[in-house]
């Protein structure tokens, strides 16, 4: 797979709910529409929470993986 062009990375590893979502919401304001943001989180609720967040805000989850307890999301800004 071609490497995606990540505009910004949010390292929310170690943070508990709701900070991974809150930090992502703040960071995504700094990138233009259509750009990609990468989020790293260790909060076990992340998979469902980011799905809900994407649904509610209209941002799109482009990639999602669980790398040994670190959840990685790549989101495209609406």
């Amino acid at each position: 797979m071609a490497a995606l062009e990540i505009a910004k990375t949010v390292d929310a590893k170690g943070l508990s709910c709701p900070m991974p979502i809150v930090k992502t919401a703040q960071a995504i304001k700094e990138i233009p529409s259509g750009a990609l943001i990468e989020v790293l989180s260790t909060d076990k609720g992340s998979t469902r929470d980011f799905a809900a967040w994407a649904r509610s805000t209209g941002n799109e989850i482009v990639e999602q993986s669980d790398e040994g307890g670190v959840y990685r999301f790549v989101l495209r800004k609406k």
Partner: peptide, 9 residues
Amino acid sequence: ASTSAAMGV
């Protein structure tokens, strides 16, 4: 409150 704002609500 903070989550709600983060969700764009």
